[in-house]
Simulated assay, not measured.
Amino acid sequence: MNRLQGKTAIVTGGAGGIGKGIATAFVKEGATVAIIDLNEEAGKQTIQELQAYQPESIFIQANLAEHDKLADLVKQVVDRFGKLDILVNNAHASRMSSIAETTQKEFDLSFNTGFYPTFYFMQAALPFLKETQGTIINFASGAGINGDVNQVSYVAAKEAIRGITRVAANEFGPFGINVNIIAPIAKSPGMVEWAEANPEYYQAMLAKIPLRRLGEIESDIGRTAVFLASEDASYITGQTIMVDGGSVKLR
């Protein structure tokens, strides 16, 4: 299990949930990972777990809504490890609300923590990924593809991320950089908490998933990210990979 041996990765939102699952899958495949997260306590705990597999991996505490500092974070990682091979833009915060109830505040939260960090990290990482012919993995959602109700600010940011990912695939492809999207349904701590509070809605959602289960953050979502970051996926770019148990079937 050394598909990412010698590679260096940044995973935003890597202290918990899907980001932690990806970071864990990466270090088990030999990658050195820098997790960037706002949650200092969770970040310190997670990095201890990751270092059991890859001792050089690091945690950087940062607020991704401070967009003017994001390029410095990329440089910090490159200065530490000498290169960057993989960028995973996973972090995103949002609040549920209908179109009628949504204000600028909801849009600001969703775009400032999801869309803009994805854009600025891609921009800052480009010179370094050119050198390694590296990989970018961004995150979207079936909520955006389906237009789920009460998710307007989240959907807007996620579909905007899908748009700029396609542009990046076209612009970065000549440099040997592949840029793809994962759209997951996963058993993250937040999803488990929601399911426990809303059992009827959870069962209804589960019934719509052909495989009748939520994805595991490491073995399902993380392993898909490993594939996309490996040589096995070097001829795949500009694609939205639905890791959702068959819920959305793109045409």
Rank of each mutant, 00 (worst) to 15 (best):
G134T: 02
S188V: 12
V155L: 05
F172H: 04
D148Y: 11
A169W: 00
I164W: 00
N170E: 11
R162F: 05
Y154T: 02
G190S: 12
I181C: 04
N180V: 04
D108T: 11
G176K: 06
S141F: 03
T135H: 12
A100C: 14
G114D: 04
F111T: 10
A124I: 07
I181Y: 01
G190K: 15
G144P: 02
Q104H: 15
K187Q: 11
G114A: 12
A143P: 04
S110Q: 13
F111S: 10
Y120L: 14
K187W: 09
N150A: 14
Q151R: 14
N178L: 03
A186Y: 14
E196M: 15
S188H: 10
R162T: 12
G190L: 11
I185M: 14
P174Y: 04
I161Q: 00
I182D: 01
P117K: 01
A195G: 08
Q133F: 06
A156K: 03
A140V: 10
T102H: 08
A195H: 04
K105W: 08
F172M: 14
M122Y: 02
W194P: 12
I182K: 02
I164T: 02
R166A: 04
A186S: 14
E193M: 07
T165D: 02
A169T: 00
S188A: 15
I185V: 13
S141A: 09
G144W: 01
A156C: 08
D148I: 07
V179S: 07
G190T: 11
W194Q: 13
T118C: 10
V179Q: 04
A156I: 03
N170C: 09
R162Q: 12
F175K: 03
F119W: 13
A140G: 15
S110E: 10
L126W: 13
K187M: 11
F119P: 00
N112E: 09
K158Y: 00
G147V: 05
G173I: 04
N198Q: 11
F121S: 03
P117V: 01
M191W: 14
V179F: 06
A197P: 05
P117H: 05
T132C: 05
R166P: 01
W194G: 12
P127Q: 12
I99M: 07
G173F: 03
N170F: 09
F172A: 09
V149C: 08
V149A: 13
N178W: 02
V152T: 10
T132A: 06
N198V: 12
V149D: 09
M191A: 15
T118A: 14
A124Y: 05
A100M: 15
V167N: 04
Y120S: 08
P189I: 15
N112H: 11
S188D: 08
N138C: 01
E131W: 05
A157L: 03
T165G: 01
V149I: 15
D148E: 12
